[in-house]
Every structure is written in structure tokens, then in C-alpha cells.
Amino acid sequence: MAQRLHPQWDPIAARTAGVLYLSIAVCGGFSIGYVPLQIVVAGDPLASTTNLLANIGLYRLGILADCAVILFEIAITAILYHLFRQVGPKLATLAMLARAGMIGVMGINLMFWVMPYILEQNPTGFETAQLQAMVQFCFDAHAMGVFVWQLFFGMHLLALGCLILKSSIVPHLLGWGLTIGAFGYLIQGVVELTFTEIALLDGGIIGLLVVVTISEVSFGLWLLIRGGRSLSPQSAQTE
């Protein structure tokens, strides 16, 4: 299919965004998907505290990965706005603000993740059971915070997907994947934050999250491999 690069498309910025996208996927998968599973035990403060003390090195690596994600997110938010502002200024602004809101929540959420270590390493005067309960509370708050920033991220992906569909730069299949898959984050965030339990929604949410995950990784790869190509006007028309 013929595609035409937008006159304002910046190949270097696109390639940088691709690197950031994939870096966020790796660091975020580690800090959000892997580390909590090794430490936090739902409803068991003693087990969570024990796991924390037994896996301090892994815990610190998770914090480092979270810090990297936040810094990478700031950079990619600015780059995506730069790439797509000519396609749709209002949508690009919405995408930027939504992702910036997500970054703010992620920063607050990181504090909840750090607090258990502070509680364990500094004398507080609390009894052991109270201290463990506070550690578990911080872990639980961190888990709920993920669903809060998912709302912002879902809105960002919805706007970004629409921008891709409006453009003649990125394959529209990726735009549809991001637009449709964004509802996985939005619905899951609302369901979890309102403590709603509807079994029929679970399968749909999982399906949407699979779609959006594949689309995000594919978009990052496209930015890195294809979006970073500097094409002449003639080749852009025939590619």
C-alpha cells in the first residue's frame, strides 16, 4: 500500500521513540510484572514482609527499573507530540496531557513502592504486626495505583490510535490495534477501582490487553525499523 511520510516527520525522533518504547516494555515488564509477583502476597502481610527482606536486591532493581520507566516516559511523551502535532494538534495535545498525567501517577505510585523499605530500615516504634500491616498497605496501594495510571494511559492510546488513523505515516492496522486495545486499560481500570466483579468482562479485558500489547510492541518496532527511515518524496509515494 502506498504511504507518504508527513513533511514534518522526523526520522531521528521516530527511531528514538522506537528505542524508548521497547526500553519501557522491558523495564516496565520487569518492575511491574515480575518483581511484585516475587515479593507481594495478597492478604498476607507476614509473607510480603518476609519476601521483601529476602529479596532486597531484586526489590532495588525494580525501583531502578521504575525510575528508568518514568524518565523514558517523559522523553517519549515529548517526542510523540513532536511527531504527530501536525497530524492533529488537538488530539496530539490530548495524547500528551493524558500520558503526562499517567507519569504523575506513576511517580506517586513509586513512593508507595519505596515506603515498605523505609519502614523496614528505620526505627518506627510500631509493633511487628503493625509494621507488617503498614508494609502490606503500601503494597496494596501501589497495586491500585497501577489501575489509576492505566486510565490515563488508555486515554493516551485512544488519542494516539486516532492520530495514526488520521495520518498517512504509520500503518493503520497499528492505529486500530491501539484504539481498540486502549479500552482494555480503560475498562480494567474502572472495574478494579470500583471493585466490580463481572466474570464476562474478564475474558474481554484479557483479549483487549493482548491486542494492545501486541500493537504497542509492533508500533515500537515500526518506529525503530521503518519510522526511522529518511525517504525522498518520490520513494515515499511508492513505498
Rank of each mutant, 00 (worst) to 15 (best):
V69S: 04
A236D: 05
L223Q: 07
A199Y: 06
V210I: 15
L83K: 00
G184R: 08
Q121S: 15
I180S: 05
F183C: 01
I63N: 11
A65Q: 07
T128P: 12
L209W: 02
R226F: 12
S48W: 08
L163G: 10
M111E: 01
L61Q: 08
L131M: 06
Q132L: 13
I76G: 03
F30L: 13
Q130G: 04
Y185R: 00
F112H: 13
G184F: 09
G154L: 02
V105K: 03
S167P: 06
L131V: 03
V148P: 01
I74M: 14
E127W: 08
T194M: 09
G207A: 10
L5Q: 14
L5T: 14
Y117T: 01
Q136H: 12
T49L: 06
A141E: 09
G181H: 00
A25C: 04
V35L: 07
L61Y: 15
D202L: 10
L158S: 02
Y34Q: 12
T49C: 04
I164S: 08
A129W: 07
S215D: 02
G57V: 12
L178N: 00
N55S: 15
I103T: 15
I169Y: 11
L201S: 07
V217K: 13
C138Y: 13
T213A: 15
G161S: 05
D140F: 01
K166G: 01
G161V: 03
